[in-house]
Every structure is written in C-alpha cells, then in structure tokens.
C-alpha cells in the first residue's frame, strides 16, 4: 500500500487556490484595509475640523510616535511595563498550573475548592488594583501581582480541565498495560493536558498586558500606563495614541511568541489528515 493510495485529497486542492489564501494576497489585503482606515480617519478629522485634543490626525500620531521613540522616552517606560507583564505572567502561570495540578489529583479537592475557584473567577480582578497599591506601594510589585492574579485563573481552570478530561478508553488501555499511577499521569494525563494548558497561556499573556497597564493607571510614575495618565493630564492626545500603538504591538508580539512555542511543541496537532 502506498502513501498516495490512502492520502485523501484536500478539497479543491487541484484548482488554483483563491487569491486571498496566498501569503502575498493576505498581506496585500491587510495593507489595503489598513490604508483605507487611515485615509478615512484622516478625512474625518479634516472634514469635521475635530480638535487634536479629541482625535489627532494620523500624521500627528506618527510624529509623536517617532519623536518619543527616538528620544528614548517611550522605550524606557515600555521596559517597565514589559517586565511587569512578564513577571506577572510567569508568577500567575506557575502558581496556576501548580495549584491546578494539585486540585486535579482528587475529587475531594475539587469539591472543596470548587465554589471558591468559581467565586474568585467571577470577581473582577482589576477591581483589586486600588487595594494592591495600598498594600504594596507604588513600585512594580502591585502591577506584577495584578497581572499574576489575572493570569492565574485561566491556567488553574485549564490545567484542571486538561488533566481530568482524559479519554476513558485511553485510561483503560493504561490499566490493561498495568501502568502505575505515575505512568498514567506522565504518559497520559500530562500530554493530554498540555494543549489545553497552552491555550490558557495564550489567553493569559494578553490578559497580563491589561493587568499591568490598569495597575499603572491606579498608581505609578513609570510604565506605559502611567504615561497615558500623564499624557491625559497634559492634554497630549497624540502621545496617548502613540502609546496605544506600543501596547498593541507588545500584545501581538507576545501572542505570536506563544503561538510559535505552541506550534513547535505540538507539531502533531498541526498535521492534517493527508499531510
């Protein structure tokens, strides 16, 4: 039996792929829409004569972005925020995964902790920011803790789900093979949970950005969030927009890094029938 005989043909692969599925096509489409948005934005500001205080023109934002980047102003604050994000993400994820692993071990633990986990999940973590500032001061610590808190729950939940949602037939297979509890855990439950845990990490990294910035809103003199508040005070709306661009790029880059890690880790998830 040859490989060609069993490999199902991908639907429509014999025809020419649609232009928007090619790499070049996708890039052109994205660029075209981006340009259109900028043009509409610019026209809107010009035609309505809106004050730059409310909505600056794209070119003003660009000027502010270049100027504040070259002066090192934005970069300095970015490092502060970035370290809060990464430390919070690391702390929250590690604790979330560890506690999730412990909780997944026994039904009793899940029963005892269940209501508290639900309650703390329902509670908006950002609402805790002011009390964190009171407890931990104006430095980096309260932001790290808020980012960690917000990262903690998706990982706790996904770790528990991942470790407990094992296919019963696969569990039976391990019983037939007389596998020990450890073998069952490391050779079945963990590999089964990893993709779900990674999905949690992907969610957590974007949430960490929100946590760090909101933490800075509440009380800080450094970081991009603090800079936004300062820009608000000095009516420097173009600078605010420049910071939004920074935050968006940070979010995208971190998300892409997680995605890349995931793809290298779980190559088996990305093979399609027929590859």
């Amino acid at each position: 039996m040859t490989a060609a005989a069993i490999v199902p043909m991908e639907v429509g692969s014999a025809e020419r792929p649609a232009w928007y599925t090619t790499r070049f096509g996708q890039l052109s489409l994205t660029l075209a829409i981006f340009t259109a948005v900028i043009v509409v934005w610019d026209l809107y500001v010009r035609l309505t004569g809106l004050s730059a205080l409310v909505l600056p023109a794209p070119y003003d934002v660009w000027l502010s972005l270049v100027e504040n980047t070259l002066s090192g102003h934005l970069i300095n604050h970015m490092w502060v925020t970035l370290s809060e994000i990464l430390l919070g993400f690391l702390l929250g994820s590690v604790i979330g995964i560890a506690l999730g692993t412990i909780t997944a071990q026994s039904l009793l633990m899940r029963t005892i902790l269940g209501p508290y986990i639900l309650a703390s999940q329902a509670m908006p973590k950002l609402a805790l920011a002011p009390i964190m500032v009171i407890w931990l001061g104006f430095g980096i610590a309260p932001k790290v803790v808020i980012a960690a808190l917000i990262c903690f729950f998706p990982l706790l939940e996904n770790t528990i789900i991942g470790l407990t949602s094992t296919n019963p037939y696969q569990v039976e297979l391990f019983r037939v093979l007389t596998a020990s509890r450890w073998q069952l855990f490391f050779k079945l439950r963990v590999p089964n949970a990893l993709p779900i845990i990674f999905a949690g990490l992907r969610v957590a990294i974007t949430l960490a950005v929100v946590g760090a910035v909101v933490g800075e809103y509440v009380g800080a003199n450094r970081g991009l969030g603090a800079l936004i508040i300062a820009a608000q005070g000095s009516f420097d709306t173009p600078l605010m927009f420049a910071i939004f661009v920074y935050l968006t790029v940070i979010g995208i880059v971190l998300y892409k890094i997680m995605e890349l890690l995931e793809q290298t880790f779980f190559s088996w998830r990305h093979v399609k029938p027929g590859d």
């Binding site: 696969q170 039976e172 037939v176 093979l177 990893l194």
Partner: peptide, 19 residues
C-alpha cells in the same frame, strides 16, 4: 488483574494522538 502476558485490542483503536 491485567498482566503482561495479555494483549488487548479495543473496539476503537485507542491510540495516543500525540505519539
């Protein structure tokens, strides 16, 4: 209890999809 001297084939092929 199950033993090493026994092979078992399930109704579905219970394979581990990450292997």
């Amino acid at each position: 209890r199950p033993g090493r001297d026994m092979g078992f084939v399930f109704q579905q092929s219970v394979l581990l999809e990450w292997r």
